[in-house]
Amino acid sequence: MYFKCWIGKSGYFVQEVQKLIQLINDCIIPGNANFLLSPSYRDDFSWICDNKYTSCVVESPITQGQISLYTSGTTGQPKIIWKNCHEVILNKKGTGSQNDRWLLTFNPGRWAGLSVILHTIRTNAQLVIPDDLTFESILAKFSDSTHVSLTPSLFRKLQLCDNGMLQSADIQQLTFGGEYATQKILDDARKLWPKARVTHIYASTELGDVCSVSDGLEGYPTMKFINWAIDDDGELFLNGISTGDLWEVNFDRLYYKGRNSEVINVGGAKVTPTIVEQQVNSFPGIHECRAYPIDNPLLGQVVGLDYVGPVEPLALRKHLLQLLPKYAVPAKINQVKSVQLTSAGKLSRI
């Protein structure tokens, strides 16, 4: 897998993830250099000529051993976040052994991918690296792996594949991240790999790993969050920092409701795509779906929906009209062969 990063002021182009691991061990952890990770893993060096990125490295914190990452997410301009590599590794929770074989399904230039890499460094585990981040390449490496970290969207795509091949994989740990894992996702994962420990993580590039849960239930116990608050709009704040995520408290558990920036404004009524997708995914026969905004001259925006599964659009619409307020029911429903994901493996909101 091609990969690139820029070290110090001179620049250094890394082409293999194994080389990146060597660099992390030899240069970054000991504090001999900083480096800037690119979110692009293809062989495209045009970004390096942009002075904005170069000056960002030059102006990096005085202490070495820093990694800068681009935030991922589905909307908005990416931001650059600095992380102390040594501290990240020290703060990483979870155990492991050298027999663990972690499959890399995330871009190593983003927090999710780097997190897996740093975990394998910390626990001396092995990293299974696909040829690239296409679905086919990732699928080809499943039988080599025992531990997998992936998005729920990628998992739904896997469910459409030959289940015999997946079931025979010796998966001992399945970690969901990057997107919210619904109860259905967690239940389906346990059905596919009954022996696996299923975990879901709430994390972001800015905050790192916030918390993880392995109790088989969606949402997170409130006790897992430190210094948290939810404002009147439902946005979660951690240590006073806005997460941009909308959450709801039910008894002693927090449930994710969507991203603030993803809200679709239907004639003044706000719709979070996640809520629509959760209801759609609950319909028998639906494998995966994606809700997104469509510009409309009458209402500003309406909800669009792409879905995969042998279900008639009219039947789905009738189902949704019973579960959602009418403004949240998609005005355009398309049956598709696959839904669009971003390079980070998340549902595209565009």
Binding site: D295, N296, L298, L299, V302, A331
Partner: peptide, 28 residues
């Protein structure tokens, strides 16, 4: 039908003709 349904019919119509409706000059 309500405004939401109207928007849905409009959307389908746009898809049918292969063009998005330009609002300029349209008196709804």
């Amino acid at each position: 039908i309500d405004s939401l349904d109207y928007a849905m019919v409009m959307l389908s119509g746009e898809e049918f003709i292969g063009k998005k409706v330009k609002e300029e000059g349209v008196i709804w």
